[in-house]
Amino acid sequence: MAEQYTELELAINTLVENFHSASPTKVGTLTAQEFQSMISKELPTMVKTAGDQEGLNKLLTDMNVEDGKGVTFKDFWLLIDSLATAHFGLLSKEKQVKCVKCSLM
């Protein structure tokens, strides 16, 4: 019997797979161009500024990715964390929801 994954498990798996498939070299680090292409394709609504060079540079700076260095999965995961936190903030303002079991920064 095959295991049934939850929606959350499937979402996490999708994030991991999409990051690693974005690099043709499969080295675990994306170039700025590979990262920009992936973000533009996979997160166009949440990361609108990554579409141009100035926006990409600001995003990479905000993620603490140094010039000339690749984007690691850890860097990407920190972006996902900040997007999820911001999204939760928007939802909590809209619905007046307070999460008492977690502490989101």
Rank of each mutant, 00 (worst) to 15 (best):
A2I: 03
Y5K: 15
E7H: 14
E7Y: 06
E9D: 13
L10R: 11
A11F: 10
I12M: 09
V16D: 12
V16S: 02
E17T: 08
N18C: 06
N18D: 15
N18F: 04
N18T: 13
N18S: 14
H20D: 02
S23D: 10
P24V: 12
P24A: 13
T25H: 11
T29E: 15
L30N: 02
T31A: 09
Q33D: 15
Q36C: 08
S37M: 11
S37V: 07
I39E: 07
I39Q: 09
I39D: 12
S40I: 11
E42H: 06
P44K: 14
P44D: 09
T45W: 01
T49M: 07
G51Q: 11
D52L: 02
Q53D: 14
L59R: 03
L59G: 04
M63S: 01
M63A: 02
V65P: 09
E66P: 03
G68S: 05
K69T: 01
G70T: 01
V71P: 11
V71T: 06
K74N: 12
K74M: 06
D75W: 05
D75P: 04
L78Y: 02
L79H: 05
D81N: 08
S82K: 14
L83E: 10
A84T: 10
H87F: 08
G89S: 13
S92D: 14
K93Q: 15
Q96V: 05
V97L: 15
K98H: 06
V100Q: 08
S103P: 00
L104N: 02
